[in-house]
Design a protein around this nucleic acid. Structure first.
Length: 442
RNA sequence: GGCCCCAUCGUCUAGUGGCCUAGGACACCAGAUUCUCAUUCUGGGAACCUGGAUUCGAAUUCCAGUGGGGUCACCA
């Protein structure tokens, strides 16, 4: 039975890399008809964020990731305490009363052995008594490779903080064991602390699950992708106008690939085709261009009415419009945008009279507008076919250059050179409004 | 700096000793379609980090160098 877990901390907005870990863990479990567990690692009270847990659940739901079991570490404090004390009485851990060190801003600690390890204190934080000159190893599930350490290079790690909360090192081992996790997937940044966990497994006589270290997603400028470098929070990306389907597809292919290089995946297809042999070993770079491409693909895939709803959320003027018109506009914009947020720049002229910069026009624009007005005033009916043919007749009659003529109309009506097809737009805009805008240009 | 991981087009990658003249996708360039933009279609340039070793044969195995990344908290 394969059982995997996703174990985020509610300390900030979820990062795209965390989400990817959830997708992989979910696919590994579900591909094998196993269980996927959501475990909240809320053992750092100082960094915990209000609503963090709800955010995690909300995000997973957006991506259709459902968990079979749910657990919260802060509700298991006695268990960790008991086990930490057992480790002390067994001689594998010790109490420490040193002042807590903070993260180094620069430099690094050279002292691996804690001064309290032989003081035989009776209270304080509990630290692991790492032995010297022992070899400890495991086979990484992602790297498919044996990795080993000499314990003399591993520092005495804190297992239980003086506030009674466990650190990750203790909690992860105890929980994965209690929950019968068969495969633990985690970020590559955990690799250096794996020997600590291995030692805890050994002293507790637990069986070690498969442990796999996923690649880190890198920033295009170098270094690990972080919140500071651009918007990499999942909420941020969604707000920017990326579809969950596209985000999912993009991110699973960052660090994993199928044998046949298939590009487009739904969650279901990913679960079906998932193969742990497809895991990548080298860190990938977060590449916006590819994300944009995926997003465009998915925008073109979803139905007009669903896309229309997304535009409504994005733009309140659009929402107020007549339903038929909304669908027509949606169709015109659909194949021209890469992000939902691109909607405004392309469709704004439908609800707002544009400011027209006369410098955009070519030489004969006044003649063009004059002719167009003539056509519009005499047009019989209001449909695209008639408009097309009447306008084209006028163009040939006056010997206008087709492109120039329509560009003049485009600029007068929309204020820009890049728009949906102008005749379709005129039909949606309406006869009255079109004439009104053209008159202003004369 | 110690420890650990990694290394194929600009980017994501296929490749598990001969099928590789290294394949696909994004991006880029050119052309076709088109009233602009976009979509769509066709074509193009573009990579095995370096040096040794093993082998009849190496992108693929081994070693070293170089480069990139991670980590060295009572944070996860």
């Amino acid at each position: 039975m394969i059982r995997t877990r996703f174990a985020p901390s509610p300390t900030g907005s979820m990062h795209i890399g965390n989400l990817r870990t959830a997708f992989y863990a979910y696919a590994l479990a579900k591909h094998n008809k196993g269980d996927f567990i959501l475990r909240i690692e809320d053992t750092d009270k100082k960094r915990e964020k209000m609503g963090g847990v709800e955010d995690i659940k909300r995000l997973l739901k957006i991506f259709n990731i459902k968990w079979d079991e749910y657990c919260v570490q802060s509700q298991r404090l006695e268990i960790y305490n008991k086990i930490a004390k057992k480790l002390v009485s067994d001689g594998h851990a010790f109490y420490c009363q040193c002042e807590a060190k903070n993260a180094k801003e620069d430099g690094f600690s050279k002292e691996l052995r804690d001064p309290c390890r032989d003081k035989d204190l009776k209270s304080g934080a509990i630290k692991l008594k790492v032995p010297d000159k022992e070899n400890i190893e495991f086979t990484d599930y992602v790297l498919k490779k044996k990795i080993s350490w000499n314990t003399s290079t591993v520092g005495d790690a804190t297992l239980l903080k003086s506030d009674g909360f466990p650190t990750y090192h203790l909690a992860v081992v105890v929980d994965d064991n209690d929950m019968k996790i068969s495969h633990a997937l985690r970020g590559h940044d955990w690799m250096p602390s794996t020997p600590i966990h291995l030692l805890v497994y050994k002293y507790l006589e637990f069986t070690v699950p498969e442990i796999g270290h996923l690649t880190d997603i890198m920033d295009p400028d170098g270094g690990k992708l972080s919140k500071r470098k651009g918007s990499t929070s999942v909420d941020g990306l969604i707000n920017e106008g990326y579809l969950p389907e596209a985000l999912f597809n993009f991110v699973i292919l960052l660090g994993w690939a199928p044998k046949d290089n298939k590009e487009l995946f739904t969650l279901k297809e990913f679960v079906n085709l998932f193969d742990p042999l497809g895991f990548q070993k080298a860190n990938p770079i977060f590449n916006r261009d590819k994300l944009d491409w995926f997003n465009g693909e998915y925008i073109r895939k979803i139905s007009n009415s669903n896309l229309c709803k997304k535009f409504e959320i994005q733009n309140s003027d659009f929402k107020k419009m007549d339903k038929d018109k909304k669908i027509q506009i949606t169709k015109l914009v659909k194949e021209r945008i890469k992000k939902i947020s691109d909607f405004d720049s392309l469709a704004n002229f439908f609800f707002e009279e544009p400011k027209v910069d006369n410098k955009l026009f070519g030489i004969d624009y006044k003649k063009h507008i004059e002719s167009a007005l003539l056509v519009l005033k005499n047009i019989k009916g209001w449909d695209l076919e008639t408009l097309n043919s009447d306008l084209m007749n006028e163009v040939t009659k006056n010997n206008f250059k087709i492109g120039d003529f329509f560009m003049s109309l485009r600029i007068s009506l929309t204020g820009t050179k890049f728009t949906p097809p102008i005749n379709d737009s005129i039909i949606i805009l309406g006869k009255e409004e079109t004439i009104k805008r053209l008159n202003k240009m004369e």
